[in-house]
């Protein structure tokens, strides 16, 4: 996996994790405007990062929720999440 793809994917995971935790917080605090503001900001950043990723490396989401900008069906492109080596020195 090329280092740039890995770096971008890592950025997506970071943003997405923030969104997950904020989402759970908002489930029980739906009127919390500060949390909502942060959530909106982070999910916008996440959306942008995903768009950038998909443009370069193919769809992140299946069933047409993601974009497939390439000429082949990039959804099947490896590696799949459980195959990626996230060790800092790894490939």
């Amino acid at each position: 996996m090329d280092p740039r793809q890995k770096e971008l994917l890592m950025r997506i995971m970071e943003l997405e994790f923030a969104c997950i935790d904020l989402d759970l917080y908002l489930a029980t605090h739906p009127d919390d405007t500060r949390a909502l503001q942060d959530f909106k900001m982070r999910s916008q950043e996440l959306m942008n990062a995903k768009m950038e990723y998909e443009l370069a490396y193919g769809p992140l989401l299946n069933y047409g929720f993601g974009t497939n900008p390439g000429r082949t069906w990039q959804w099947i492109d490896e590696p799949w999440p459980w195959e990626i080596n996230w060790r800092r020195s790894g490939t």
């Binding site: 029980t28 605090h29 739906p30 009127d31 919390d32 405007t33 500060r34 949390a35």
Partner: peptide, 8 residues
Amino acid sequence: RYPPRGDK
């Protein structure tokens, strides 16, 4: 009814 507002 929702929980108290976080900004107040």
